[in-house]
């Protein structure tokens, strides 16, 4: 059994007109192994953030459920920490207090000194030493998300949920923080579930990329294995012969076929078993051609 199982999750929202319901996505079934980095890509409105919130326990699924480590995970908890798109730092707290708020809850038995040392360690890890007593308003977007990452990693969650974490950060800083995330993740090896619409980011970071069709009634149509070996860096990953194969495949899917469901455009609906088409680009195959 997988470490994190998203089991036939379906979400309905009340329709805007007030009568009946709108299906956001249907039968999302994902199995994630411990220490795996899985990313979902899809157009806006396909419900990928809703799916992430369901895993986090911040929203309830209409059907199906989430099983973490053999137990149903319902409701939010410290084992599934979210890194939010708009940072979600408390503006009235300093950097230190923002992280300490989470650490104190995660380790209630710790002494004040232990908490301080732990928080400082993670602030140093994201390179924000000296900014402990600043408030979020005094930080740039990149620095804010570093605090968000420090807060998330500091409580050492079983699952890290990244909700378009770099979407509001300028492109140059984004790359730097992506590599910092790789560094932190290499040491912690949390299981990560990320939602993004940045294809390069997904390839750089992920083991597997799930492609969602357009909503409403979206589903996970394809699952792309990122077979580029780790360790990856922004510089080397684009040199890899498979990089553009994977990238083009995903972009073709998003641009041309997200409406139809598969990258060849043949499928006209969700397969009844709900299982996505598995796409694997092998290096050997590339060599043979």
């Amino acid at each position: 059994m997988s470490f994190l199982q998203i089991d036939h999750v379906t979400k309905y929202f009340p329709s805007p007109s007030g009568d009946g319901q709108v299906c956001i996505f249907r039968d999302a079934t994902i199995e994630i192994e411990k220490g795996e980095f899985v990313t979902v890509i899809g157009h806006s409105g396909c419900g990928k953030s809703t799916l992430l919130n369901i895993i986090a326990g911040l929203e309830t699924p209409s059907e199906g459920g989430v099983i973490l480590n053999g137990r149903e995970a319902s409701g939010p908890g410290l084992d599934r920490m979210v890194v939010f798109q708009n940072f979600a730092l408390m503006p009235w707290m300093t950097v230190f207090e923002n992280i300490a708020l989470a650490v104190r809850s995660a380790y209630p038995e710790w002494s004040r000194d232990q908490i301080t040392a732990h928080v400082r360690k993670y602030i140093a890890l994201v390179g924000l030493k000296g900014a402990e007593d600043k408030r979020p308003v005094a930080l740039s977007g990149g620095m804010k998300q570093r605090v968000g990452l420090a807060r998330a990693f500091s409580i050492e969650p079983k699952v890290l949920l990244l909700d378009e974490p770099f979407a509001q950060i300028d492109a140059l800083t984004r790359g730097v923080i992506q590599e910092e995330l790789i560094q932190m993740w290499n040491t912690s090896r949390n299981t990560v579930f990320m939602v993004t619409h940045d294809v390069d980011e997904a390839i750089l970071l992920s083991d597997r990329i799930l492609l969602m069709t357009n909503g409403p009634e979206a589903w996970i149509a394809e699952m792309v294995h990122v077979t580029i070996p780790r360790p990856r860096s922004r510089e080397t990953v684009i040199e890899h012969p498979l990089y553009y194969k994977i990238r083009n495949h995903i972009i073709h899917f998003l641009v041309r076929h997200a409406k139809h469901g598969t990258s060849d455009g043949t499928s006209q609906g969700q397969p009844t078993d709900g299982a996505p088409v598995i796409v694997t680009f092998e290096q050997d195959a590339l060599a043979r051609h």
Binding site: L78, A88, W92
Partner: peptide, 26 residues
Amino acid sequence: RKEYLHVAAIVQLSWFKRLFKVILPA
């Protein structure tokens, strides 16, 4: 803003702490 409450829910703040550390300051 919902995220403040989301953070409070994830880090499992007690009702009392949620009120005095998050809701009232926010």
